[in-house]
Every structure is written in structure tokens, then in C-alpha cells.
Amino acid sequence: MKILKEIYDYREMIFTLVRKDLRGRYLGTALGFLWTFVNPLLQLLVYNIVFSFVMRSGIDKYYLFLFVALIPWIFMSSCLTGGSMSIVGDSSMVTKIYFPREVLPIAYVTSCFVNMLLCFIVVFLVVFISGIPVNFAVWPYLLPVMAVEYLIGLGIAFISSAVTVYFRDLQHILGIVAMAWQFLSPVLYSIDLVPEQARPIFMLNPMTPVITAYRDILYNAQAPTMQTLTMAFFFGILVIVFGFLLFGRLKRGFAEEL
């Protein structure tokens, strides 16, 4: 509990880091901040070419089906891979100054989250342009879903950043892990495509209910089921608590390992 208060006391440091990260991310590039939008759009284009023209999925307005899941997924993927570097990458600070170490992954995840929110502006635009029915009544559900995803992302970043300090190889392995995780989450396909007997296993993936919820709200224009929301909430709490405790244990050795 004391550590939570301390992190709160260090909120200014978190804001400063987030601001610096957002400002510095595309510093010196020609398109600058536009990259925030261009990158996901290009990814969308690639996936769309593959799954709408080559391996036809038969899903109506596949680009939208994919887009509403891809943006939340990119956030989670950067929490895992980029988040793993949040301690190692700031080793000079960690070995020299005291501050609650949690600040670094929190700042990184928050900056990714802000990025995701900005991308959602584009998502909303695409939703309107696509001409599918829009049900504003269910949009408020986005708030708890995003909050839960933030918690999962933070928990994941706690774990990957702390473990990477001890096992540097992890930063290379995580690229593959992220890819596997993406294909095992219903980002490119619908959970209904998964064979019935394998579905319980897929339900153990914290991202399954989150992605399903986003898609329900924005693509299917309906409220997520109570089961989806409960599962998402349950995973959110589980991952953040586990990540926080693990980080708390491992952080004591950071300065010596770096």
C-alpha cells in the first residue's frame, strides 16, 4: 500500500516521462507525429491485402473487422516488447537515482495508451465511413474495456521489463512471443472460427475477451456479453496483481544486475 502512495507522489515524474516520450518518439522524422496514424494504417493495408484478396476470409467489411481489433492489439504488443526495455533502457537512471521503479513501465505503458487513444480517432472515422450501422448506446462500454486493457498491458510490461533485466535474451524472444500471441488471439479471425473443443484454451488468453468486446461494440454494434466483460475484468485484475507483485520482488536487484 505504501508503494502505491509513493507512485502517486511521483505522478509528476510519470507525466514528465510520458510527455517526453510522446514528443520525442518521432522527433526529427519528416511525418512527425503523423506516424502515430500512418503506421497502423499501413499494417492494416498489408493485412487487408492478404485476407481480403489472397486468402479470402469471407467476412463482411473485413478491413473494419480487423481494424477495431488491430489498434488495441498494437498497444498490447508494444507493452510486451517495448515495455521489456523500459528498465534496461534507462539503466543509467536506475543505477544512479532512487525513484519507485514502477514509474518507468507505468510511463511507457501510459504513453502507448495515449497513442492508442489517438489512433481510435482514426478508428472512429473508419467506422463512420464504412457505413456499417453505428450504435452509440453501446459506445460507453469502450471505457471499462479500455481501462481493463490498460491494466493488462501494465501488468505485462511489469513482467517483461523486470524479467528482461535478469535475462537479456528475452528482448529477442519477445518478438516471436508477440507474434504467436497475436495469431492465438482473435485479431485476424473471429473466436467463432476456433474449433469448439479448443475454445476453452483460447478463453485462457486475457486478450480474447478484450478483443471480442472491442469488436462487439464497434463492428457488431452491440453490447459485449456479461460473460465477456466479467472475463476481461477478471484477467485484468489477475495480470496486474501478478505483474505488480513480481516486479516488486525483482526490482530490488535491478541496480546490481544492470
Binding site: 509513493e6 507522489d9 505522478r11 515524474m13 514528465t16 517526453k20 537512471m93
Partner: peptide, 14 residues
Amino acid sequence: YTNAAIFGLNRAEI
């Protein structure tokens, strides 16, 4: 501002 934030001060205090 960044350095004082590392010491745990909030914006008003700084």
C-alpha cells in the same frame, strides 16, 4: 522540472 520530479515533487511544489 524533470529533475525535481525525480525527487518526487509534483508540479505545484516545483
